[in-house]
Design a protein around this nucleic acid. Structure first.
Lengths: 231, 231
DNA sequence: AATTTTAATATGTAGTACATAAGTATTTAA
DNA sequence: TTAAATACTTATGTACTACATATTAAAATT
């Protein structure tokens, strides 16, 4: 094992602030007490008293929970638990320039994996209407120029539609988040590589082919990406 | 389109606090200026002056960025940008009792999709040693009782090992996060359903079979989950 | 010159004060 | 008596001050 994942393996020497501590305790408290969304939570003053910290520190922790969508606060009414947005905070940090290279590569592979796994759900959920729309997208790209930025835009449009066809909004959002990363890494390729299976081919497979045939088509479409993966 | 995703479609009527605003501006600032990890950031006082807010509000926003791992702060030295932990905040909120049902289902499907997409990377990265370890796990489960909690524990162990074999730590962490959700939904099944393809079968496929054969094996292993998916 | 001591500085925590929104109770008027 | 207007209460939101603490930089001492 290399040294590049050391920060994951042993963790950082992070000295914990009280806000960190309070955040942890609050999360634990909310889960342990098994509050349900909508339930009212204690007032700030009650929490400061119980935790023995200043309102300042408490509010820093609460602010984090608010960001996660775990709590909602209204003046006078107080706080209530709510259903967190599991992808929200991920969206905030999705910037290829900030994320470390190992994770970028991981994300790249994660998307490839999803793409290869899509067939099963796709064949359960696909509709005639969706396939027609996908075909329209694929055909519109046939005649357009092959400049780099155009090519990526088309990739995004086509694959985005496929994710949408799964009817799974979380998956759809997830893939949208991964796109900048994907685009960033692919952009480094100087020579535009054309897969053996085009978008139109994929549409035809989706129309007439089996689940397995579509998946193999997708594999060939992504072949050049897979070839570059390191053992 | 149903009403169940309305909160995603139109967003909540959330009245924005200044901390929300400042958080947004800081994120935008950090990305726009294309700081790199390690770069020093302005002092709190400079930021309060520039933003025209109290130190209190600023610190609530900074506290959020700290939670995301985007910034690190040290006394006297100030703040530096750092590589965020993209899954960290997701881990915090992964509680099946809090997350709404639609998202829970989405997550369930997301995991199935990953599972089906794993074959490609797995066949690039698998080693003899890993397969032996996986076999050991599979065999140890053959003789054990079939009680619900044991079954789930075995599932976790086996599939966890497979994810580990991808060499993709993000994927591995991601799946670990998804487990409680998966366990929660599967736990509702009263009758233990045994797939046509067992863990041992999967190991043998991984040893002697092709990528496609392994994937079809995985599909059969997960068949009863797929059968329950709604159109 | 090397070491110790002192000072300076930026973040961390505490506490007070007041603004603001939103229920709740009270008063006023039809 | 009831409806509307008014005043009151309460919990969160924002601002400001003060001081603690860690860490770097500078100064003093050996």
């Amino acid at each position: 094992m290399g040294i590049e994942n050391l920060h994951i393996d042993i963790g950082k020497v992070s000295y914990k602030t009280m806000a960190d501590e309070v955040e942890m305790k609050l999360l634990e408290y909310l889960k342990r007490k098994s509050f349900k969304p909508g339930d009212a939570l204690p007032k700030e003053m009650e929490l400061t008293a119980a935790l023995g910290v200043s309102r300042n520190v408490l509010r820093e922790a609460l602010s984090r929970l608010r960001m996660l969508g775990m709590i909602e606060t209204k003046k006078r009414r107080g706080m209530v638990l709510s259903s967190p947005d599991i992808l929200g905070s991920m969206e905030r940090v999705m910037d290829p320039l900030i994320i470390d290279d190992t994770t970028l590569q991981d994300i790249f592979e994660l998307r490839l994996t999803l793409e290869m796994g899509l067939a099963d759900i796709l064949y359960i959920r696909k509709t005639k209407k969706d396939i027609e729309e996908l075909e329209k997208i694929a055909l519109s790209q046939k005649t357009t120029p092959t400049k780099q930025n155009f090519r990526i835009k088309h990739e995004v449009e086509f694959h985005g539609k496929i994710y949408q066809m799964t009817g799974n909004r979380t998956m759809q959002r997830f893939q949208t988040m991964l796109l900048p990363i994907f685009g960033y890494l692919v952009n480094e390729e100087k020579v535009p590589i054309v897969g053996k299976v085009s978008h139109i081919d994929l549409v035809n497979l989706l129309k007439n082919g089996s689940r397995e045939e579509f998946r193999e088509g997708m594999r060939k479409h992504l072949e050049h990406h897979f070839k570059k993966l390191k053992k």
